[in-house]
Simulated assay, not measured.
Amino acid sequence: MEKEKIQNKELTEFPIWGQEHIESGALAQMRTAINLPIAVAGALMPDAHQGYGLPIGGVLATAANTIIPFAVGVDIACRMCLSIYDLPAEAVDTEKDKLKRILVNNTYFGMGCTTKSYFDSSLFDKKTWNETKVIRSLKDKAYAQLGTSGTGNHFVEWGELTIAEGALEEIPAGRYLALLSHSGSRGFGGSVADHYSKLAMSKTKLPGDAKHLAWLSLDEEEGQEYWIAMNLAGEYASANHYEIHNKIARDLGVKPIAMIENHHNFAWKEQLADRTEVMVHRKGATPAGEGVLGIIPGSMSTPGFLVRGKGNAESINSASHGAGRLMSRRAAFKTLDRKVIAENLAEKRITLMGSDVDEAPMVYKDIHAVMAAQDDLVEILARFEPRIVRMANPKEKPED
């Protein structure tokens, strides 16, 4: 394909939530994205920070027949999942040893980690696993990693969930034991992203600052292949969480009274307020259409929130996917004091298994400021306080 040029048009404005919390690099990346020939609309969430191509926290609507692999992200369909138990929140203290043991016995972290037993592997009966050469080549890897979690900011944790009066019809207000997990489509999604990102950049050649925003056309075979693989990665990411949560519930001997989940790092075929058909890329952004439930975590020692979307058209029905990083991993290792981190965790009564300085609470923005900056995007229904946190071994290379 001929080398594409960024349209020579005046800088298109895009709405920004919490601009005071967003670094200049993320703003520059969003400006580049919004000026793509295929761009229709965009928005930047308050947790935004610089990434590859589209910033993390960036939302980009493009022409309906186009999709940008790097605007979806490397960890396709990275996902949150929350299980709520009809057990008192105090169990994180009274049953701490038991809950720690359950996490150790039922969670697996690491880039190459696998499991040997499954709660439900029926996803692999789908014919989609045979639809393309790329998917077929990755099926065995995906099967071996079903029910595992990644490195970096991925976690499985017990915590205390406080539900507001009248927030959820099926669950009374109160304080409950809850399990929260964050992970994605593992090596399967990463390999799909790598293959099709390179393919897109070979087909749609863009200037240096925009090269990672290369797109594929859904009118062509490669675009259709990526679309099929991306959606399968979404189903796989969900199945991963269900494996983790179901195994833990079985070990606990109690079924949850509710499970709530949502993707980020994904692309959806949607309509804008004016009914324009578009492809909405949410890279590190939570779907927040009217009435849609989602989970926005903080850090290992700060709260996360169960939210309901308000359907704000200006944000393209989106909200933040977390607090967002305040400093790079390299900066964290250079500047943070392990003693200060340990004191912070002790003060918040956090039991931590795994992780390292680069995931310390101080590397993240103030989740309360981030939530305040998007109160027109989501309604807070419940507050989750982490208490027993499991993450990857400190020696593991971060993959988020």
Rank of each mutant, 00 (worst) to 15 (best):
T115W: 01
D97T: 08
A392S: 15
E2H: 08
A214V: 01
V134D: 15
Q29Y: 03
A319L: 02
R250G: 07
T114K: 13
M327V: 01
I228G: 01
N130K: 09
R282G: 03
N246H: 07
E170R: 15
F384D: 15
Y226S: 12
I295W: 11
G253C: 05
P15T: 06
M327G: 00
K348N: 15
L345Q: 07
N317D: 12
G234E: 03
A164I: 13
D194N: 14
N65Y: 03
K334V: 00
S122A: 04
N105K: 08
Y236N: 06
V307A: 04
D366K: 06
A144H: 08
Y118G: 02
G324S: 08
M259C: 14
A373G: 05
I316C: 11
A28F: 12
G25H: 07
F124Y: 13
A89R: 08
S117C: 00
A193H: 05
G152P: 09
A382V: 00
N317G: 03
M327D: 01
E165L: 14
L161C: 11
T115F: 00
K5S: 12
L199K: 10
G189M: 09
S83V: 08
A382K: 10
C81M: 15
R79D: 05
E235S: 08
E396S: 10
D93N: 10
I367Q: 09
A319H: 01
P386R: 14
I257E: 09
D75V: 01
A369S: 04
H241A: 01
K100C: 14
G73A: 01
M371Y: 10
